[in-house]
């Protein structure tokens, strides 16, 4: 009795592109951004030809960039965190009150911001990873908790007048050799705020973390296949927990950067920031189903999103609702693209 084991069909042995999913989506994102920006420069002109326009995008979105990076980490592990926007708001408010009414200094306010972010990350991470709750529900509760807490602290806008802090807010880092010439012919160098520097450093750190550390690779493994990752000897629960903690920390840092940019605390700060962060991550090539994504992609996701917002505004659609609709539209398109890519992949596997 001889039984031949069934050999595989030749079809499934066929090689396809050797791009990993992550790289493929990253390339799409970068291409989208470049095309968009070039189009803006060529057709719209206005401010887009000046380098400062580009750096203004960064100045405006340093906080969003950090939030999106945290979001990307969680989404790579297959989770989601929608509390980051309200945590940002809470951080601003808490720091403002700390500086203005409790006589705190800049250093302690930074610690406060990090502490709040960490606390949210740890609690939410514990509930998601170890008690196995749906991340969406847990962080929705986190969102409302932070929202309530913010208004409990103060329901009014609080402007910060602390001297050291205001100095930090106003600090501009000039970019050598880049800038524009004004009407009088004087060269004005381009500048970025200190927040941008922090955000970019963080981007580089997180990029390296995801690429070269074991923890970073574990994030991908857990998101790629939960059970497989477990059987490969990865502590899945700890990995998910750490992703949420890091995301919480990013929310703390992002919150402080928002605070630096706005110089005030208000319950209305960072409204809808979580949506922008999720949208940036998705546009940056992070798959909702987890396991695929890249911090570099997220950077370009944030840039693309901000650029399209600016384009929409400068096209004359300056009513506030247009930006929201644009964000939603972009989110929708990229979600559909992902869904189609995923279903095609599944089909070819069968």
């Amino acid at each position: 009795m001889s039984i031949n084991t069934p050999a595989l069909n030749g079809k499934s042995l066929k090689r396809r592109s050797s791009y990993t999913d992550t790289n493929l989506l990253l390339i799409i994102t970068i291409a989208v951004f470049i095309v968009m920006y070039v189009c803006a420069v060529v057709f719209l002109k206005k401010g887009f030809t000046k380098p400062q326009m580009f750096f203004n995008i960064l100045n405006e979105n340093a906080s969003l960039l950090v939030l999106s990076c945290g979001m990307t980490l969680v989404m790579i592990t297959g989770g989601i965190d929608i509390s980051v926007g309200q945590v940002t708001s809470l951080v601003c408010m808490a720091c403002a009150v700390h500086l203005e009414q409790n006589g705190g200094n800049v250093f302690t306010s930074i610690l406060l911001a990090l502490g709040i972010g960490l606390a949210f990350g740890i609690v939410q991470g514990f509930l998601v990873a170890y008690l196995e709750f749906q991340p969406f529900i847990v962080t929705l509760a986190g969102l409302f908790f932070a929202k309530g807490l913010t208004t409990i602290i103060s329901s009014d806008r609080i402007s910060v007048t602390n001297e050291a802090f205001v100095k930090l807010c106003r600090y501009e880092v000039t970019i050598p050799f880049l800038g524009s010439v004004n009407k009088k012919g004087i060269f004005i160098p381009a500048y970025v705020e200190i927040g941008v520097v922090v955000a970019l450093v963080l981007v580089v750190l997180l990029f390296c973390m995801l690429r070269w550390t074991k923890l970073g690779r574990n994030f991908y493994a857990v998101g790629g296949n939960n059970q497989s990752a477990n059987m490969l000897g990865i502590n899945v629960k700890l990995t998910k927990f750490l992703a949420h903690v890091l995301c919480g920390l990013c929310a703390g840092i992002g919150g402080y950067l928002f605070f630096l940019h706005a110089c005030s605390g208000s319950p209305l700060h960072a409204q809808g920031a979580e949506m922008n962060a999720i949208a940036s991550s998705i546009i940056g090539g992070t798959l909702l189903s987890g396991g695929v994504g890249n911090i570099a992609g997220t950077l370009f996701g944030v840039l693309s999103l901000s650029t399209i917002k600016m384009i929409v505004t400068s096209l004359g659609f300056d009513d506030p609702w247009w930006t929201n609709i644009t964000v939603a539209l972009m989110l929708c398109i990229f979600l559909l693209v992902q869904s189609v890519i995923l279903s095609r992949k599944n089909k070819t596997k069968k």
Binding site: F145, K147, G148, T151, I152, S155
Partner: peptide, 13 residues
């Protein structure tokens, strides 16, 4: 206050 209510509800959730 009306906006702080959400914090309590979050705990209930």
């Amino acid at each position: 206050s009306s906006s702080a209510i959400s914090a309590y509800k979050a705990i209930v959730v």
